[in-house]
């Protein structure tokens, strides 16, 4: 009976360790795959000019104008959540959160550009970013779930100005 209790305690202790290892392993892999996919898609979309100017240059030659939108909800893994929780104690730069925010913002921008590509846009003007913290909305602390959205005005130029 004593042996059983010891095994049980050992297993209970094992759970967070397994979660950390799983989070770090699979989470790291997910992040790397995501970054590779972002790089590939960004390279495909370089033909579209992006800026955050309020006015459209040379408005006379615009053939088609539409608002485009891209959005994503993304979460950290268990390991990174723990890393940010520890970082909250000692202060300083929160690299795990920085990575998450950068990936979310790039993903939202890429999705917006893919939307622009579907109408053969040449440029996207007045790009803005919005952000909401989903985990806070759900009344939970710790695990970070963030939504980032990007929107702008896509312009397709006419064949003749």
């Amino acid at each position: 009976m004593d042996g059983d209790a010891a095994t049980f305690n050992f297993l209970i202790l094992l759970v967070p360790i397994v979660l950390i290892v799983l989070g770090a392993g699979v989470g790291g892999l997910t992040a790397r795959t995501h970054l590779r996919s972002l790089e590939r898609r960004e390279a495909e979309l370089t033909s579209i000019e992006v800026n955050n100017l309020k006015f459209v240059r040379d408005p006379g030659s615009a053939a088609d104008t539409r608002m485009v939108l891209g959005q994503v909800v993304i979460a950290t893994d268990y390991f990174k959540s723990l890393a940010t929780a520890l970082r909250n104690l000692v202060g300083g730069e929160m690299r795990a959160a920085e990575g998450l925010m950068n990936r979310a913002r790039r993903e939202a921008l890429v999705r917006m550009l893919e939307d622009a590509r579907s109408m053969n846009a040449d440029e996207v003007w007045n790009v803005r970013f919005g952000f909401s913290n989903i985990s806070q909305m759900r009344g939970k602390q710790g695990a970070m779930q963030v939504e980032v959205f990007a929107w702008g005005t896509a312009v397709r130029r006419g064949a003749s100005a």
Binding site: L19, L22, G23, V26, G27, T30, A31, H34, L69, Q71, V72, V73, I74, A75, T76, D77, Y78, K80, S81, E107, I134, A143, Q145, E147, F149
Partner: peptide, 23 residues
Amino acid sequence: AAGLKNLVGGELKGYTELLTEAR
């Protein structure tokens, strides 16, 4: 599903869809 996804990280597709539709 989102809670489970929190262990390994990555996109929460259900939430993305929900918010896309809502917006």
